[in-house]
Design a protein around this nucleic acid. Structure first.
Lengths: 114, 114
DNA sequence: TTGACATATTCCTATATGGGAATGTAATGT
DNA sequence: ACATTACATTCCCATATAGGAATATGTCAA
């Protein structure tokens, strides 16, 4: 089985660094494709393809303005990612504690850790 | 060019749902491989391979205890991900505002938005 | 209509999967 | 030494890229 599709979910979509860069760029404000091409120095077809992926998972929204397409980041779609990482937040502190605990256990050198 | 390696960074490593499940499971406490196999109902080789990826990017730590290998999640390695998503946090509110603004603009139906 | 501009799609290719099956390796018990 | 338990690695394969090149689509201007 191959890897999951980039459009299968937000996690897969942001796995690509170019797409993360695009998201950061479009978070500030709406921009036409050409601006992304120039600013991030990517080939135009490449940008269009990345935007397609981001659009499919709802990470960006688009609207047409004349010949140009204006894209902007839909920050709300990043929330699931944020929330998932947040579930680990409480363990950051715990792990420091564990290091301390192990250090103490070592000092006493009697506990068989089982 | 193919997709980046799963071990290229944390973003790619967590793109796989099985690996996210493993991380959640190992966040609570240290576990041997066999427990993951039984609990998450995955083939043993599959679990070993996922653990290998997670280890390579520092998302889990391992230590041997007799025949068993005990793995645990290294929550700190998830921080970069958490911090990246956090940069978008301030836009969640802004976007709600924008929706409101657009709704109001529509009501007045006079502004040509440019 | 014709041309120019802006973006999207298609075609091609090398590559990195993730799962299944089979096999390799390490540690323990007898 | 040998069998058993617990993991790790290797081999095979179908599949989804991401980039480059070429082409298609859409919009405006003269």
């Amino acid at each position: 089985m191959p890897r999951a599709t980039t459009t299968s979910d937000v996690f897969n979509a942001v796995a690509e660094i170019r797409r993360r860069e695009i998201l950061s760029y479009l978070a500030l404000r709406e921009r036409p494709v050409g601006d992304i091409v120039v600013t991030l120095r990517l080939a135009q077809p490449s940008v269009s393809k990345h935007l397609r992926v981001l659009r499919d998972v709802g990470l960006v929204r688009a609207r047409r303005e004349g010949r140009r397409m204006l894209y902007r980041t839909n920050a709300a779609a990043i929330r699931p990612l944020h929330e998932w990482t947040e579930t680990f937040e409480r363990f950051w502190g715990h792990q420091l504690l564990r290091v301390k605990e192990r250090a103490e256990a070592k000092t006493q050198k009697s506990d068989s850790t089982k």
